[in-house]
Design a protein around this nucleic acid. Structure first.
Lengths: 214, 214
DNA sequence: TATACCTTTGACCAAATGGTTAAACCAAAA
DNA sequence: TTTTGGTTTAACCATTTGGTCAAAGGTATA
């Protein structure tokens, strides 16, 4: 289906939005410049006029796609709230963010594995744009965990392991949507949506129950 | 690097193994028939001689790749062990299986999202080959969970949610290996391996702690 | 109106890519 | 030794694909 240009949208932006749509669904290798042009309702030359090469267009799309993701993680880890509350709001906001951008995780995973070194560079430049320091964030998270451990509220879990657990539980259900929907939920879209909606509560309960000492 | 043919290996098998290597890393779209031929040290025509088309070769690779995965899940769910023990052995064996086949999950995720309907068909035919019935497995798991709940050992968690949680915690760390390694573990391969090895214990503890009533 | 500048297009190109074919190769059977 | 049938190769083909270029369109300014 051809994506109509918004009235206030410049051609340059319109191309970017259409390219985002196509790249996210099909990946770098699976995307044809001609297809982006067709979907945007313009000539293929115009793509090159605005973005020179496929690679450059792809990198722009890639950067824009992650604009919202890292700041959300950062804001939550840095905030002053107690750990359990932090986890609850993180899961809630991250699920909502992913519901709005369901294709991004699978896209990222494929491109990262396809070209780890150059994608690592892209990530670093995004980090710089956002002024994020991973070491600092991990240090803050570590400190907070240790505090709760000494208070006797928390089992002693390594902060990296906890972080990976949380992200796994949030992101994975989106990257295997077709499997969950097709095999576990009778291929019913609304059942899948309900399943995901339910997870906003289930997952934070699951995590907190896993790490708290009662 | 060119993959040497084993002495006892037929050319047909050799091609399949090389194709597996390349398809797993680069995906269907990213793979060139010429590249498979080069890596196998043979002429491109020979690929078509044995496997007709790229699509057919891909489907063969796809089926072979998942040969071990579903039976492992099935065997564990069906077995007669108590639930917590089941979870422990499942996590352990699944992590070991993934350590041996680290590229398979990211590969599967990409192909599934790229072409959900045709991949769903492929999965169904694999299920048939393995004589697996998802409904039956879910029913068994459900029954066991309900038993533990009534015994007062377990919080009331939906079996599908639990299953997705377990699989998320097992599979996700492999699909984002470059991220974990690059951002959390100073790009150190041995640190990543240790991190994964540690998860065999961490994850099953995490799950059991999350769902058990103490 | 004329000019200058940005935008858009159609025609075109070279390289890459999946696939075909006829011939050469080779080992085992007759 | 000759024949036969499976295996392997080199040369070739049609199509696709990312990218170029010169010209045309359009619009604001002088």
């Amino acid at each position: 289906m051809i994506l109509k240009k918004e009235p206030n949208e410049t051609t340059e932006d319109h191309i970017l939005h259409v390219a985002q749509e196509v790249f996210l669904k099909k990946g770098m290798d699976g995307t044809r410049m001609q297809e982006i042009a067709d979907e945007a309702g313009i000539n293929k030359s115009l793509l090159h006029y605005y973005y020179r090469t496929k690679q450059k267009l792809f990198e722009k799309v890639f950067k824009v796609a992650f604009k919202h993701f890292f700041p959300t993680i950062k804001a939550n880890i840095i905030s002053e709230k107690p750990l359990f509350e932090k986890i609850e709001t993180f899961v809630e906001t991250y699920y909502t963010l992913l519901q709005k951008n369901p294709y991004i995780p699978a896209f990222a995973i494929h491109e990262i594995n396809r070209n780890p070194s150059s994608v690592a560079e892209l990530f670093k430049s995004i980090f710089q744009d956002d002024n994020m320091e991973v070491e600092h964030m991990l240090y803050e998270l570590d400190k907070q965990i240790q505090e709760e451990v000494t208070k006797g509220n928390l089992v002693n879990i390594e902060s990296r392991q906890l972080l990976v657990n949380i992200l796994s539980l949030c992101i994975f259900p989106f990257v295997v949507k077709p499997i969950i929907k097709g095999i576990l939920l009778e291929n019913d879209e609304s059942k899948y949506n309900a399943f995901i909606e339910e997870r906003k509560k289930v997952v934070s309960q699951f995590i907190i129950s896993a790490i708290s000492i009662r």
